[in-house]
Simulated assay, not measured.
Amino acid sequence: MHHHGYLWTGPKQRFDDEALRRPPHPDPPPADGRPELIQRYKEVKAEFPLVDLPPLETAYWLIKPGKLVRGTWEEAKEAAEWLGEQLTGHATRFASESDRDSTWLAILVESATERLGRGGDVSHGFYLERPSFLSLALVCCSPNRTTPELECPSR
């Protein structure tokens, strides 16, 4: 088992486009269905695997292009340290003052180490200045506990 790190920052409005953050339903709409639904299904099916937006379900980062992986670690502690570096590096831009608290950030890193060590995924999101958003995720791979059918993006 190993862990992949993902980071996304961007406009909150783009982050809120949930249609591109969830995988398409396994069953397409009926062929005689409303044309706009059929077209939207085709768009989401084509774009979801490629778009850099964070998926609603953390494990689905694994089907995104490998170039979105920001790091890979064998040890949970190393992956959580990367998370800590990202949190520290972005903390001055957090919209909420309580999110900037160094004790709180240390708790998040410690919690990530424990969760990753048990094979779980970790995902955090923070509002940044302007209306921007930061998404950080650490995903267990080979296999992922919640979706073992997903292949590793880098192996």
Rank of each mutant, 00 (worst) to 15 (best):
R22Y: 09
R34Q: 12
Y60W: 13
A80V: 04
F94W: 02
D27Y: 07
L53P: 01
R70G: 12
D16P: 01
F48M: 11
E85S: 10
Y41R: 02
T72L: 08
P29N: 08
L20D: 00
E78M: 09
G10F: 00
E18H: 12
P35G: 02
Q86Y: 04
P54A: 14
Y60G: 01
P11K: 09
H90K: 05
K77Q: 14
F94Y: 14
L37H: 11
T92A: 15
A31R: 08
F94A: 13
P23Y: 03
P55T: 05
L50I: 08
W73L: 06
R14H: 07
A76V: 10
Y41N: 01
A59H: 00
L87S: 03
K64W: 01
T72D: 10
T88P: 00
G89C: 01
L53I: 14
E47A: 15
K42H: 02
E47G: 05
T72F: 02
G84I: 05
A95P: 04
G66W: 06
R21V: 11
G33S: 10
R34I: 08
R93I: 05
F94V: 03
L53H: 01
A31H: 09
R22H: 09
G66T: 12
A91M: 02
F94S: 00
A59Y: 00
R22I: 09
S96I: 06
D17Y: 12
F15G: 04
P11L: 14
K77S: 15
E74M: 08
I38Q: 09
K12N: 09
L62R: 00
G84Q: 02
